[in-house]
Design a protein around this nucleic acid. Structure first.
Lengths: 356, 356
DNA sequence: GGAGCGATAGCAAGCGCTTTCTACGGGGTA
DNA sequence: TACCCCGTAGAAAGCGCTTGCTATCGCTCC
C-alpha cells in the first residue's frame, strides 16, 4: 500500500493534522516537531495524495496551458516560458508553492478547446492560460464566454496570452488578464518596409479567415497599403489558408497565377513563408532578386532559411512568462486587464528592392 | 456554489449512487433512469469533481507526457500525437474514457524530470509517457528507476518513447513498454551515404555527450566510418554541444579550424544542422558545392532550408501515437516490452560529391 | 500567586465521489 | 401458486486530506 498522512503522523508521533500543517506551511509548528515530521516524510518517501488534498482544500495545484499546435514553436515557446514560470516554487505553503503546469494541445479545434477547459474545470485547476489567436465564430465565442465564466466562478484564474479579450468584456468578465501582441502594428510595419523598398504589387498569404491573429495582421498590411495610396483590389492579391507550410506553397503559386507581376509575397507567419519560398524556388525565382518574401513571428528557424527571412519578432517567451506570473498572482494585472506587447520589424535578406 | 452529484441526483429524483453509475457507465441503469439523469446533468451544467472522484476511485484520469523541450518540434510532434491518442474517448466508463493528457516540459533538466514525476505521482496519474533520449548519469538512472518503480507500484503505467529502457531491466521492471528509434542504424546509413558520395573527411557535431540519443547516433556514424576503413582519429573531428542551432554554428567553425579539409559536416540533429549551414555560409562556402551538410530527424523545416537538408526521418508521430495507445492499454505491448522504429535516410540537396 | 494569553498540537467533521452490500419487484419455472 | 433469480436502485461506509475549534502548557503581567 501507499503511505498515507496517517502513517507519517504515526511515525513522527504527531497527529495527521500536524503533518498536514508542516507540509502546507500555513500554520505555526514548533521547529523540533517540524523537523521530526520532515524526517518521517523523507524516510517513508511519502508523497501527498493530490486528489484527497484537492478535495479537502477545494482547490488543486494544477494549472492548464492551452495551445493550438504543440508542434509549432510559436506555441511551444510561449508554453515553455509560462510553464517554467508556473512551476517555479516561490514562498511556501499551498498558496505560493510550485504548481503542476500542464499544456494541452487543442489542435486549433474549438471543440477540443472547450473539452480541455471542461477537463480542467473538472480537475478544479487553479488557473488556465489560453494561448494563441481566437476564433471569431459567434457561437464559439458564446460557448467560451460561458465556460470561462463558470471556471472563474469556480475560482480558476483565466489568463489569455496572444489572444484579445473576449468581446463581451466589461465588469464581471471572467478573465483575469489578457496579453496581446501588436499584430496590426507589426503587419503594418512589415508592409511599410516593402513599400519603402519600392514594392507596389504585393501578394498576401493570410491565415484562416476566422482567426483574430489573421485578421489583425491583414488589417495592418492593408492599412499600410492604403496609407501609401495603393487601393486597387487587394482581395485578389490575398489568399487565406491554414498556418501551414503547404498552404504557403499552394497560395503562392495561386497568387502568382493571378498576378505574375508580383514583386513581393508577405506570409501570415514564418511557417507559411517557408512554403512560399519553396514554391518560388520551384518556379526558378530567386529571393530576393526576383521576388521578396516576408514572414511573421521570427521563429528560431527564420534566420536560417535561405535567404534569412525578413519577419516581425514577437516577444513570445516574455509574453508567456508574464501570463504565467499573472496566473500565479505573482505579477500585477496590467491596467484594464490588458497588456499589448510590441512587434519588431526584422529586415533581413529575403527582402530587397524589386528589380527595375 | 458549484453543483454536486447530490444536486443532480435530487433533480433527477434518484440517489447519488445512480448518478455516479450513469456517469461512469460501469453498472446497469434502466434506460429511462439514465435519460432522466443525463437531462438533469445537462440542465444543471454539472461537471464532475475530479479530485473527489479520483480520491474515491483511487485513480485519476490524468496522463502525463514528459518532454525535454517543448519549443522543439521533435518533441512537439511526439507529444501531440500521444496526446491526441490519449484524449480520444473510446468505449465508455472510467476505464476507456478520454483522459486529460498533459505535457510537462523538463527543459532537459534531470531534477525537473524527477520533480514532474513526483507531481504526477501526487496526482495519481493513470499513466506517464516519457519522451526523448535519457541521461546516462548513474545517479540519475538510479533515481529514475526508484521513482518509476514507485509510480508503477501505485498503478501508473509508464511508457518510454524515443528512449531506451532502463538498464536495470528484467522482470519487475517498472516499465510497461519502450518505443525506441533506430538512431544507430540511421546514423550509420547517413554516413554511408556520404561515404558513397566520396567523402572521407567528415566532421561530426554531436549532441550532449551524456545522452543516449547522442551516443547512438555517433556510434552509427563511427561504425560506418570503420566499415569503410576510415580509422584516423575521429575524436578530433567530433565536437559535442547542446542540441541547439548555436552549438551547430560554433562547433562547425571550430571543426573547420581543426581541419580545413573537411568536405562534409554531419550534425546530431536538424536544428544543429541549421547552425552548421549558417556558419558555412558566413565563411562563404557553398552547400553542397564546397561542403556537404546533413541533419537528423527530418523536422518539418528541414526541407525548406537552403538547400533542402539531407537527413534521417524518424517516425515521430507514429511513435508518439503508439506510446499513447500503449499507455491507455489500447494497443498490445510489443514483445519484450520493446519496439524499435526504423530510421529512413532522406538524401536531399545539401549533400553531394566532394569537388575533386 | 492566580488569571490571562500566546504558541502549539489534537479532535473530529467534513470535502464529493465510488462501491459494496442490501432491498425490492417482477417474471420464469416447477 | 410458491420460489428464485435477475435487473435495478438505494443506503452508507469510506477514500486521505484540511481546518475550525478545542485543549494544553508555560509564561508574563498585575
Amino acid at each position: 500500500m501507499t503511505v498515507t498522512l496517517a502513517d507519517v503522523a504515526a511515525r513522527a508521533r504527531v497527529s495527521p493534522a500536524t503533518v498536514s500543517r508542516v507540509l502546507n506551511g500555513n500554520y505555526p509548528v514548533a521547529a523540533a516537531t517540524r523537523e521530526r515530521v520532515l524526517r518521517a516524510v523523507a524516510e517513508m518517501d511519502y508523497v501527498l495524495n493530490g486528489p484527497a488534498s484537492a478535495l479537502a482544500a477545494a482547490t488543486s495545484d494544477l494549472v492548464g496551458i492551452l495551445v493550438n499546435d504543440i508542434a509549432d514553436p510559436f506555441f511551444g515557446i510561449m508554453a515553455g516560458a509560462a510553464q517554467s514560470e508556473i512551476g517555479r516554487p516561490e514562498g511556501s505553503g499551498r498558496a505560493g508553492g510550485a504548481k503542476l503546469a500542464v499544456v494541452c494541445n487543442t489542435g486549433g479545434s474549438p471543440e477540443r478547446e472547450l473539452t480541455y477547459l471542461t477537463l480542467l474545470q473538472r480537475q478544479r485547476a487553479a488557473a488556465v492560460v489560453i494561448t494563441g489567436g481566437a476564433l471569431e465564430d459567434p457561437a464559439h465565442i458564446a460557448a467560451m464566454t460561458a465556460k470561462l465564466t463558470r471556471l472563474a466562478q469556480a475560482g480558476t484564474t483565466v489568463v489569455l496570452c496572444g489572444r484579445p479579450p473576449l468581446p463581451a468584456g466589461g465588469p464581471g468578465a471572467p478573465i483575469e488578464a489578457a496579453i496581446t501582441f501588436d499584430n496590426r502594428g507589426g503587419g503594418r510595419r512589415l508592409t511599410e518596409h516593402l513599400l519603402a523598398l519600392g514594392h507596389r504589387r504585393i501578394g498576401y498569404v493570410a491565415g484562416p479567415p476566422e482567426r483574430t491573429t489573421t485578421r489583425h495582421r491583414l488589417e495592418g498590411h492593408r492599412a499600410a497599403l492604403r496609407a501609401a495610396g495603393i487601393t486597387e483590389d487587394q482581395d485578389r492579391l490575398t489568399r487565406h489558408g491554414p498556418y501551414t507550410r503547404r498552404s504557403g506553397h499552394e497560395a503562392t503559386l495561386e497568387l502568382l497565377r493571378r498576378d505574375p507581376g508580383l514583386t513581393a509575397v508577405v506570409a501570415a507567419n514564418d511557417t507559411v513563408a517557408l512554403g512560399a519560398c519553396a514554391a518560388l524556388r520551384e518556379l526558378g525565382l530567386r529571393i530576393p532578386g526576383d521576388i521578396s518574401v516576408a514572414g511573421f513571428d521570427d521563429l528560431p528557424f527564420a534566420v536560417d532559411v535561405g535567404p534569412a527571412l525578413t519577419t516581425v519578432r514577437l516577444p513570445l517567451a516574455e509574453a508567456g512568462a508574464r501570463a504565467g506570473r499573472i496566473a500565479m498572482g505573482r505579477e500585477a494585472v496590467p491596467p484594464g486587464g490588458l497588456a499589448t506587447m510590441g512587434a519588431t520589424l526584422l529586415a533581413r535578406a529575403s527582402t530587397a528592392a524589386p528589380h527595375d
